[in-house]
Design a protein around this nucleic acid. Structure first.
Lengths: 349, 349
DNA sequence: TTGTACGCGTTATCAT
DNA sequence: ATGATAACGCGTACAA
């Protein structure tokens, strides 16, 4: 009741056309940077001013319906509260927004059914493409997107060898990261090294375990002797449980984990067991999440380039959508070992 | 080249109508749960089967264009890498998805111009409503959304007294949280307490400072003597800088901070200054982010209900969009002090 | 209970 | 360089 009733209806292209004394098509051309060359500067100016005066904003819905491109990209994440993903999503959103695209976000919660539903909903929304940060291998998203004709890009997740080869991926060389972690522990004198792996069905877990094995082999250590555990999820709670199981058998002086959250869970279990880090056990993580330098003890971990991954994925997808650029290739960024205080030289008992 | 060319064009409502031998409007009715009562069960079944056989998914674009509701909600966040926001956003997305809504995510990066652009873009996208987690007060979003007729809900941010009173907000009782922190420090024997505040122009910073003052007053302490600093952002780096400034003058044995990230920055500065926590300085945070129990020393902080806030905000907005439910009221959840090891009894020098 | 007709706001195409 | 026209896919009065 401030003034009279404000018009709740947004001005349309027809209103602008009327105000500028031109046809709607001309307005459309004047608003499209790619087509503004096709009309006279005088008319373009008149239209632009009329549009500004009316506060005209083209309806993306209508434009999308007509053009078939909604300038919208869906981003699928398994769990936004896992600190790995926010920097990735933020970089994606930024890159997308810079080119006028809107980001559709959805949590799959690692649920296959939800994943299917989300992909379908995004397709129904007219999303032009998908970025999949969902780690779950074997999820229906890749195949479904292909079937729906939705361009798809993977981030923080390797291209599954068996599945559709047209999916580009942007991730880290996970195996290299774990080889570096193992080499570091070996250099410190550790010989009996365990691995706390990620959940089954994730490419990252497989690759990191593979890197662990390669690292042991490179050091001439016995693979069969290495204690292994597999966490049920990339979470602190799951890491604690897996570490407890590992400790029950024992026989190792250092452990590599597939993920910083798992490492935090390992800290929990070690604390409960009265084992000091790194005095009684050296621990390494993966990802270098924020605050890993402030936990007790500061975690030796493998730093990956979250933001770069996100940016590259977004740009690759945009390139594919515009079709102007040559198709991008998958990239595996090189991670970097960050040595802190959770690892120490092996002290013989 | 697996088989022959798969039809890249999705089936439309007309295809389903043809396949089921009915008119398109009948299909529309059959797909709409609210209108299915108006057609015979036999026809509804035939239509449903035809739709399933063709893999028909209604175009949300076309439906939105026609109906004016896109089943889309925009979520604005200042900085997704601030650990406060992921749980909020996740809860929002979940609540929205449960009711068939899609989440549009955007980072404002605390930039007023970006904020304006994003709101306009979401309006252009046909978003049915907005959820603003952006902390910046005085940003154009609230007014702009009102002008565009976009329902808006605030989360983790109090209703600004001066601005449009129609905006509902879901946050914490920030002042109460800080009062509790101060009371805790006073009970430990501290008398000279400082406050490391949040950035200017955020409601949370103002409310928490206010709570700090109320806490001092309640304890009968002198307000004027309390050292105050204002961080330039809710970030660890900004917290470190502000703490350095505070330490330069000194004269306090405990400090409350407006945010856990700021507390982490304070840790950094204290470490550099060679001051032990809590031996030489007691520190409290705000938010109880993940891992605050694992940093060194574990942080005494104020826990807020991120997920509940997000869920309530989403449900309030949905209620307003559907119009069926009575308009929700703003809620201020009660935070809870979590005492850990960053605070200790005052030890006279 | 079902069909008809129309319009949502835009852009592509053709014509001028 | 600009105007006219049709169509994108759907929902909804209204008629039957």
């Amino acid at each position: 009741m401030n003034r009279d009733a404000p018009p709740p209806t947004r001005p349309t292209i027809a209103d602008v056309a009327r105000a500028a004394g031109v046809h709607a098509s001309t307005v459309s051309r004047a608003m499209d940077p790619a087509a503004r060359h096709r009309i006279s500067d005088a008319v373009a100016l008149r239209v632009t001013e009329a549009a500004a005066a009316l506060g005209y904003r083209p309806s993306a819905l209508a434009a999308g319906l007509r053009s078939g491109r909604s300038r919208t990209v869906g981003v699928l994440v398994p769990d936004l509260t896992n600190p790995v993903f926010p920097p990735i999503v933020e970089a994606i959103e930024q890159s997308l927004a810079a080119r006028g695209y809107v980001t559709l976000l959805a949590n799959t919660a690692g649920d296959v059914e939800r994943e299917r539903l989300i992909v379908e909903r995004m397709a129904a929304q007219g999303a032009d493409g998908l970025i999949l940060a969902s780690a779950a291998r074997g999820g229906p998203a890749v195949a479904l997107a292909a079937r729906l004709g939705l361009p798809l890009v993977l981030v923080n997740r390797r291209l599954p060898p068996g599945e559709d080869g047209s999916a580009i991926s942007f991730g880290s060389d996970d195996a290299a990261g774990l080889r570096a972690a193992v080499a570091h522990l070996v250099a410190l004198g550790h010989r009996r090294i365990a691995h706390l792996g990620g959940p089954a069905g994730t490419a990252t877990a497989a690759d990191r375990l593979q890197g662990f094995r390669e690292g042991l082999a490179a050091a001439g250590l016995v693979l069969d002797a290495a204690p292994l555990a597999q966490a049920s999820a990339y979470s602190r709670a799951a890491g604690r449980v897996a570490m407890q199981a590992l400790l029950a058998t024992g026989g190792f002086t250092a452990i590599t984990t597939a993920n910083d959250l798992l490492a935090m869970g390992a800290y929990d279990a070690l604390e409960e067991a009265g084992i000091a880090v790194p005095g009684g056990m050296s621990v390494t993580g993966f990802n270098d999440m924020p605050l890993m330098d402030r936990v007790a003890p500061p975690l030796t971990t493998v730093r990956i380039q979250h933001a770069t991954m996100g940016r590259l994925a977004a740009e690759a997808l945009l390139g594919r959508l515009c079709g102007t650029e040559e198709p991008a290739e998958s990239v595996r960024l090189v991670p970097q070992l960050v040595v802190r205080a959770s690892t120490a030289a092996y002290a013989s008992p």
